[in-house]
Design a protein around this nucleic acid. Structure first.
Length: 433
RNA sequence: GUGGCUGUAGUUCAAUGGCAGAGCGCCUGAUUGUGGUUCAGGUUGUUGUGGGUUCGAGUCCCAUCAGCCACCCCA
């Protein structure tokens, strides 16, 4: 008796079939190229960590960690790649020299309920500069982000910049007690979803008085030209030493972005950007697009007190994480996926059983010449073979029939234009380049 | 994890509690040396899954799985 098992992926996890994998690999390749160009080095760590490594780094949200046990070993799946980076910094003090610029690509796991662009298994491209508290480092990370998104074909993205101390300063200046500050951040973070009125009522609901709520709401609606926004921030936070320094830091980063050649329309100072803010200590940023809706494509910032937790001292770090699934979703919807760059270049048809050997020898020659080549698997009708080639997105179909064989030639058909010509066997590889 | 909405052919969608349909796709032929366009014909179902109510369920009820939205959080 045979039993058919239920074919079903686990909730919140996805299979990626070839069509999607092509795009995902293109995204990874593009991000890697840009990172390498800025001098970042590759790194990879295990998905599985000791539970004790991950414990205590995520506060209340430890319930969404996947835990597993093997024998007596208590283990967990990483929920991001940042804690693993911290462990590496603590584990290999002699192998890592600061500043450490590294990138890492891989999956992480969180037991959240699935939504668009949010999965239980999700891939991130992480990029960090570890060990130096410098505005140049902050700006370099933002520059990589901007160049990466541009290279992927985005034209309507914007990188929002803010600073953790700007928001905590705002709370102080508005007179919000420190223990209520995180409520303020959370309300601010919803601005894009619920609007000014929504934030206002969120604040009231959270027990924030009108005297405090009014200036907060006024502050987060600031937008426009970068220097104007910075000026307005300085004006409103002038009484708070730390907040003032934070505004100066933002101004410095903006200047450095200009020096690095980041186009002005690529970023904006956004007082409304709150993020989780749980472990950020300095500049924070987030890349967004107007359409289609996806939340953020990536997020990041400076977190000077997390990476050193395994090293026993502070290791200032700035970094970001690209959300691969989110990039994949919006690139698909915007039609930014590259068309044929990854499809095979040539399709060698098999004219008939007796010509199969000639076809396969031709395929072997083309592959040796570095041309990605698909060979037909059986001598079907020529029309059917061409149809397969077309369906796979292959640019050139090759035909070796009796006539061609006699003349020592090969028919090269361009499936895009429909034109075809007969080419000397020895010149085929060259003709396909 | 909590609350809500949704689930029909490969896909996009129809179907008052009464015979499960259409476009696109797919297959065959026109065309025994040519795809994509055209024409002719054909195919497509455990209505997510399992129960229940009913003479009768895609439709109503319960459970379950999955997706989406909000919360939470964030990539």
């Amino acid at each position: 008796m045979t039993m058919t098992s239920r074919a079903q992926t686990y909730k919140g996890m996805k299979d990626y079939l070839p069509r999607e994998m092509r795009l995902r690999q293109y995204i990874m390749k593009t991000l890697t190229e840009v990172a390498e160009r800025y001098g970042f080095e590759p790194m990879q760590t295990p998905i599985v960590e000791y539970e004790s490594t991950l414990a205590g780094k995520l506060g209340d949200d430890e319930k969404l960690i996947y835990r597993l046990q093997y024998g007596d070993d208590r283990l967990a799946l990483r929920y991001d790649q940042t804690v693993s980076l911290a462990r590496v910094v603590g584990q290999y003090p002699n192998d890592i020299t600061f500043p450490f610029r590294r990138y890492a690509f891989g999956p992480s796991y969180r037991g959240e309920r699935q939504q668009r662009g949010r999965f239980r298994e999700f891939y991130q491209f992480d990029l960090d500069i570890v060990g130096v508290d410098s505005r140049v480092a902050d700006a370099e990370v933002v520059a990589v982000i901007s160049e990466s998104l541009a290279r992927l074909g985005f034209t309507n993205y914007r990188i929002l910049l803010n600073h953790r101390e700007v928001l905590s300063g705002l709370a102080r200046v508005a007179g919000v007690p420190e223990e209520q500050a995180s409520q303020v951040y959370r309300a601010i973070d919803k601005f894009d979803k619920i609007g000014v009125e929504g934030v206002h009522s969120e604040l009231s609901k959270g027990g924030i008085g009108e005297d405090a709520a009014a200036p907060i709401v006024e502050f987060i609606t600031l937008e426009g030209e970068v220097q104007a926004v910075l000026g307005a921030m300085r004006e409103r936070l002038g009484a708070d030493e730390r907040a003032l320094q934070a505004v100066l830091d933002l101004g410095a980063v903006v200047q450095l972005l200009q020096d690095l050649g980041v186009p002005e329309e690529a970023y904006a100072v956004a007082p409304r950007l709150a993020r989780g803010l749980s472990y950020y200590t300095g500049v924070v940023f987030e890349a967004v697009i107007e359409q289609p809706p996806i939340g953020s494509l990536l997020g990041g910032g400076r977190y000077d007190r997390l990476i050193g937790s395994f090293a026993g001292r502070e290791v200032p770090t700035v970094g970001t994480a690209f959300g691969i699934e989110r990039l994949q979703i919006v690139m698909t919807e915007l039609g930014l996926a590259p068309e044929e760059s990854t499809a095979p270049r040539a399709f060698v048809t098999i004219f008939g059983a007796e010509l199969q050997g000639d076809a396969l020898r031709l395929a072997a020659e083309l592959r040796a010449a570095g041309i990605p080549t698909v060979a037909a698997l059986q001598p079907d009708k020529l029309g059917k073979q061409l149809k397969e080639a077309d369906a796979k997105g292959v640019r050139y179909a090759l035909v070796v029939g009796p006539d061609e064989l006699t003349r020592g030639e090969v028919v090269v058909k361009d499936l895009r234009s429909g034109e075809q010509r007969s080419v000397a066997r020895a010149a085929v590889a060259e003709a396909l380049k």
